[in-house]
Amino acid sequence: MRASQDRSNNDLCRHWGLNHMEKRAHFSSKTVPYLLLLPQLAITLIFFYWPASQAIWQSFLMEDAFGLSSEFVGFDNYRHLFAQPEYYKAMSTTVVFSLAVGTLSLACALLLATQADKKLRGGEAFKTLLIWPYAVAPAIAGVLWIFMFHPSLGTLSQPIRALGLDWNPLLNGNHAMTLLVLSATWKQISYNFLFFLAGLQSIPRSVIEAAAIDGAKPIRRFWTIVFPLLSPTTFFLIVVNVVYVFFETFGIIDAVTGGGPAGQTTTLVYKVYADGRVGGDLGGSAAQSVILMVIVIALTAFQFKFVERKVQY
């Protein structure tokens, strides 16, 4: 039985041109490796390079009001964009929003993860509960937060008013931004928590114990031992969270504030949608998405070049 299995495995390997006696795969024909790479390459080409190049091309075009024809206008879309005060406003909104959500969600997740990493009664249940928000769709998360904080319907709006704050995220831009930051943070904490927890669990317990014997109290232990050893996880999460706040918060913005009041919570990605899809300015929207793409690529490259140096692998 065993021998015949081995033989059929060998046949299979030979069939695929693989020599399984060596660790490195050797292919007898040139087409097989390309065939094996094809699914991944196809996904990258169809879902990234093709739309990205479409956007670049589109950003040089201007469409007529009915979308029936388009003409090549060179950098006009970009020139027009940088002449709009709304665009600079969206940029500063994005910076405030990203910094707030990124910092808050990373800090909260790290705090929760360090607590969940302790030996607790019912610890597993807490961990599961903390991961749940990640399974909630952004739009539904947004609606949940509206139910809590809507000025007239919200269950928590009345208590807030009772505290003497004239709470109204529908009219007050700062209130709207606060609500948005809270909901986007809440949504992202689960993800960050999961990675921080995994990172914490991979730190050998004996290293922590050695530090305890070496006279480091818990807080000092955290900053001198745990935090530096978590830096690969933290770095990874910073990169992922930047992408999250720039792109993936669209759903939650749309559900909670719709970019309002008066464009006060319109971030760059929301403006791409509002101008292109709602405003019908496909060329201008394409130009914005090209700029957004460049910003995120630049940010990620910057992180890899400069922040990664501080990472202890």
Binding site: S206, V207, E209, I213, P228
Partner: peptide
Amino acid sequence: IEPADRDIAMVFQNYALYPH
């Protein structure tokens, strides 16, 4: 009494050096 205040030192099987 906390380990830090027992005035002991310990050598671990996997060394437990601070890698960073």
